[in-house]
């Protein structure tokens, strides 16, 4: 029973961490994309609208490697836990 409760609480906490981190990293990426657009010259800015540029960049980001690496939020504590159980017992 203790373990079920632990699993549920740990899962919820890790999900919270995952959610916060994913929002944070997305926000950082959005900020960078906005700055990138602002750095373009006038001709390039005329070609793509600001919102479209940012949205396209975010879509690329969501398919990218970073989103997958974020799953380490679950994997690393799991590995640490397995290692701890092995070492202690």
């Amino acid at each position: 029973m203790q373990f079920v409760r632990f699993g549920v609480v740990a899962g919820l906490l890790l999900s919270l961490v995952y959610l916060l981190l994913s929002l944070y990293l997305r926000s950082l990426r959005r900020e960078r994309l906005e700055n990138d657009w602002a750095g373009l010259d006038a001709a390039a800015q005329a070609q793509t609208e600001r919102d479209a540029y940012v949205a396209a960049g975010l879509r690329r980001y969501e398919r990218g490697l970073w989103r997958w690496l974020l799953l380490l939020v679950y994997v690393l504590p799991g590995l640490a836990l397995a290692w701890l159980v092995y070492v202690v017992n």
């Binding site: 203790q2 373990f3 632990f6 836990l81 701890l84 159980v85 202690v88 017992n89």
Partner: peptide, 14 residues
């Protein structure tokens, strides 16, 4: 200890 404090010690007999 079980899960708290998080030592995950189950082998007190050992």
């Amino acid at each position: 200890t079980g899960v708290y404090p998080p030592y995950f010690k189950f082998d007190s007999s050992d």
